[in-house]
Every structure is written in C-alpha cells, then in structure tokens.
C-alpha cells in the first residue's frame, strides 16, 4: 500500500497509496508504517497530497503510529486538504499532529532540528 522516499538525515516520507484513509484500510496502513518503525525509521512524514478523505478510524491509525514512535522520533503530516484539516480540527487532532503544506516544507523543518 505505502510508498516511501528517503531524505537526509534519516527522514522518511510516506505516500499512503490510497485516496481514502478509512476503517477499510486503516489497520493495514498502520501496520505497514509500524513495520517501518520497527525497522528503524522514526522520522516520518505522511504525505496526504492524494488523500481526499479521512474517517475516525484513519485518525485512530495515525494516533497509534504516533504512540508507537513515542519519544524516539517524530511524525509529521504534509499536504492536508481542507476537508481533512476540518476533520482534524473537529476531533481536536490539530492539537496532536504537526502539519506542513507539503513534504518539502516538512523535510526542511525536521532536518533543521538539532
């Protein structure tokens, strides 16, 4: 499902490869990213450019990924459309996740951190 692109230093951008992140695919999405984390990738950016819709199960999967990373790394989101932003706001998830306009902005900010 997911496709990854690596950036220095140790940042991985993930394209989910789906248009809708919902109960139908949320567990598979989460499991694939947790496999990446288990393999050592802990600076992650999920690229939402192609995702048009997220339901509560999709949000839950993102929270699960964030908890899996814990304090070992970071999870950023990029390219959220207005409906997805609204969903995050309604569920107060905008307080939990950091988002960027696009992957390039996220990579730049994350790579500048000490």
């Amino acid at each position: 499902m997911i496709h990854t692109t690596s950036y220095d230093p140790d940042i991985t951008a993930i394209r989910p490869g789906i248009e809708r992140l919902t109960a139908m695919n949320a567990k598979a999405f989460k499991d694939e990213i947790i496999s990446l984390i288990d393999a050592g990738s802990t600076q992650l950016i999920v690229d939402f450019k192609d995702i048009t819709f997220v339901d509560s199960s999709g949000l839950g999967a993102l929270v699960g990924i964030l908890k899996k990373i814990g304090n070992r790394g970071d999870l950023a989101l990029a390219g959220l459309n207005s409906d997805v932003v609204r969903m995050f706001q309604i569920c107060r998830m905008d307080r939990v996740f950091t988002s960027y306009p696009d992957v390039a902005s996220a990579v730049q900010t994350m790579s500048e951190r000490p």
């Binding site: 839950g60 999967a61 699960g64 908890k67 309604i90 569920c91 107060r92 307080r95």
Partner: peptide, 21 residues
C-alpha cells in the same frame, strides 16, 4: 462529547462525530 475524548485514544470518536456533524 469530542472534547472529552482522550487525544491519544485510537478509537471512540465515530458516534461523537455523527452527533456533532
């Protein structure tokens, strides 16, 4: 009430979303 849901809960928002939206 979505304000009362633990921010780090992985489920439990669906019914609240329906009532709110």
């Amino acid at each position: 009430d979505l304000d009362q849901v633990d921010l780090l809960a992985e489920s439990g928002r669906g019914l609240g979303l329906i009532v709110q939206c």
